[in-house]
Amino acid sequence: SSRTRFTDYQLRVLQDFFDTNAYPKDDEIEQLSTVLNLPTRVIVVWFQNARQKARK
């Protein structure tokens, strides 16, 4: 499976959201998916990875 290449804009939006809320609800994931034009699955994985990094 090929890795998703995020744009600077997508990363900024995801990071800004994460800084406020590391555990987005389903409807928030749907909204991010629509706004960023990314599959919900990709967003879910991004947040999982971001939470892992934040824990270190």
Rank of each mutant, 00 (worst) to 15 (best):
Q31Y: 09
D26H: 11
P39T: 11
Y23L: 12
L14F: 03
L14M: 13
L11W: 04
T7G: 04
W46C: 04
D27T: 05
F18V: 08
E28A: 11
K25W: 03
F18N: 03
Y23G: 07
V42P: 07
F47M: 04
R51G: 04
F18K: 07
D8I: 02
V42D: 14
F47S: 02
R5C: 15
D19P: 03
A54D: 10
S33A: 04
S1C: 14
R41A: 14
Y9W: 13
F18Y: 14
L14T: 00
V45T: 14
I29R: 01
Q31G: 09
V13E: 03
R55F: 03
V45H: 05
Y23T: 09
V13N: 10
F18R: 06
V13L: 06
V35L: 12
D19E: 06
F17S: 09
T7L: 03
K56S: 04
I29D: 00
S33E: 06
F17N: 13
P24A: 05
F18C: 08
T20P: 02
Q31M: 06
V44I: 13
R3C: 15
A50S: 13
A54F: 10
R3H: 15
L38A: 11
S33R: 02
D26R: 11
K56A: 03
D19W: 05
V44K: 06
S2R: 09
N49A: 03
I43S: 01
D27S: 12
W46L: 01
K53I: 08
R41D: 15
I29E: 02
V13F: 10
F47E: 00
P24I: 05
R12E: 07
D8M: 08
T20A: 14
F18S: 06
T34E: 07
S2Y: 10
A50V: 11
Q48V: 10
A50K: 04
T34R: 10
R41P: 08
V35I: 06
F6Y: 08
D27F: 12
R5L: 15
Q52Y: 05
V44Q: 11
Q31S: 11
R12G: 08
Y9F: 15
F6K: 02
D16P: 04
R55V: 07
E30D: 14
V45A: 09
V35T: 14
S1V: 15
N21C: 15
F6E: 04
F18M: 09
Q31R: 11
S33C: 04
D26F: 09
V35P: 05
A54K: 06
Y23D: 15
S1M: 13
K53Y: 06
Q52L: 08
L36N: 01
A22K: 09
V44G: 10
R55C: 09
L32Y: 09
A22W: 07
Q52V: 13
F17W: 12
S2T: 14
Q31F: 11
S2W: 03
V45E: 11
T34H: 13
D19L: 11
L11Y: 07
L11V: 11
